[in-house]
Design a protein around this nucleic acid. Sequence first.
DNA 1: TTGTAAGCGTTATCAG
DNA 2: CTGATAACGCTTACAA
Lengths: 337, 337
Amino acid sequence: MTKKKKAPTSWDVARLAGVSRSTVSFVLNNTPGIKISEETRRRVLEAVKALDYKPNAIARSLAKQKTEAIAFFVLDIANPVFPNMARGIEDVARQNGYTLFLCNTDGKTLREVRYMNIMLERRVDGIIAGALSNEEVSKIAQKKNIPLVILEHPRLPEHDVVYADNVKGSYEAVMHFVELGHKRIAHITINPESIIVQERIEGYKKALEDAGIPFDDNLLKIFYDKVDEEKAINELFSLPDPPTAIFTFSDFMAIQVMKILIRRGYRIPEDVSVIGFDDTLANLTIPALTTVSQPFYEMGAKAAEILIERLKNPNMPIQHIKLPTKLVIRESTAKRR
Amino acid sequence: MTKKKKAPTSWDVARLAGVSRSTVSFVLNNTPGIKISEETRRRVLEAVKALDYKPNAIARSLAKQKTEAIAFFVLDIANPVFPNMARGIEDVARQNGYTLFLCNTDGKTLREVRYMNIMLERRVDGIIAGALSNEEVSKIAQKKNIPLVILEHPRLPEHDVVYADNVKGSYEAVMHFVELGHKRIAHITINPESIIVQERIEGYKKALEDAGIPFDDNLLKIFYDKVDEEKAINELFSLPDPPTAIFTFSDFMAIQVMKILIRRGYRIPEDVSVIGFDDTLANLTIPALTTVSQPFYEMGAKAAEILIERLKNPNMPIQHIKLPTKLVIRESTAKRR
DNA sequence: TTGTAAGCGTTATCAG
DNA sequence: CTGATAACGCTTACAA
């Protein structure tokens, strides 16, 4: 390894080209309203190439008072619902000259706040949060006047938010069961502290209602702490009139449910139909899982678009955008026997 | 929204505390070798809190000539083998005060080079690359003297690299088949341009050899372009002596194989045993897939550790670190009938 | 059209 | 122990 020699600066370029530093800046940035003679431009560009000069973005950020960097706060990138979101964000960020910081928060407020401070110190231009544990981050963002767009939740009126149509997604899943002749339709879900869960339940109930099926509290299994599919199945199938169809909060839960059911000798979909949510894993299971597909990539992309738009136009009205979900019918659902 | 007012600077803090700007810097950084009176320190800290002052990391980076930021070049974060790696990297980066840029390259050299330039402009302290399409990035890194650690591939001697023990992983998978009595063991894999594929084939052959099973070229299915599991199965099972066990390059391929087999009426594992590689999706299938688990998280974490170590000590000898894989036996493998 | 010089917000050197 | 002051590398009026 050679001795670490410092990177060339615009000064070096200017000297080599025989011009001033501002001239270098002008040609490199194509500064509007400034005309540079062809000859000068050529000399500068040549010097840039000769020195393999890379402008120092740090210095530029300091001078321009913006970094063209944004941060993605994510619960956990290793959770399969997030990578596609991240990809959507990164794609549009990159296409617009922005660069992306990845921040895993594990849904812990402390971590969120810490990362918030770090990103504030780094002077990112804006933040996209894939779910927030509470309003702390929002408060800081407002106080510091930094744009924050929220994915899914919470739906704060002070910020742009992009979310999926959970009510309709849920509704369509249950309606699919109804059309297949099912009447005993269970829903297994997680802690309804989050609006997402509430909307899913809302869609579930609305579909039942529209189908003329009375809501049965015994068929709605909510887990406030850790989801225990085994327990849910136990209780569900010791009912006098057990379900013939099960709708879960996620693909992951649906897979657990299928495994338990198969282990107990039920056939899917002949004996029990199952629908998941997300479409992250649904195509991989055997039998392939019918599920409600969420537009994760589009959600990320849209969030990034809105953020970048807001950076250009801070006074644009707040946007709350609902993206459609789609029922994807595969092999885990069939006519009620 | 209030009018965008500028963030407070160390100057504001200094003025409020009635001290100089350097004093502020000293107390905030606990600059070693500098003693500050309790009284002064208290006043400064109070002013910091009163103004909700956040030091400008951009200005600091410019002055210190380092950013405490690193970049992760990844083929595609939406590919399930990478999120855990990213998590490993981010965890150790964060714990060491570094911040992570996420860069999807799609394995395209052009994109890699572009991102390389961007990250060079942003003066990141170092780069971790999760697979590189060729040596372009390496050349740039060497030229610019910026630390680059490579995950898996290519195994360039000029850089630190962290990789999984593919030979052993492959060997153990095949040996597991052997122990179950299988003699006709197929391997379906992708384009062997990459060392990873070569090592897997090496392990496959070595296990056969150690088991005294002659290598049969008909059982090794290599796809130079797109993998076509359907075709592989067709050819494999029209052999006079078809395989009773199939080892694939990835979990994803194993799942496709299982689906095809099941569709054709084979039972798994009764009729055909299957082993995958990665352990990203293996737990989702029914039957659950036996697979070679890769230490993705650890690989990411280790890469980040090495990078940070090298940042502290640039002259440390180059490290090539091989991490162990682990055979995880689940339900897709059984004794040969 | 090109050059000069004043920031941008820190850190770090050096007197006091 | 504290306070000036010079970098750090770029942008951007303002002059020329």
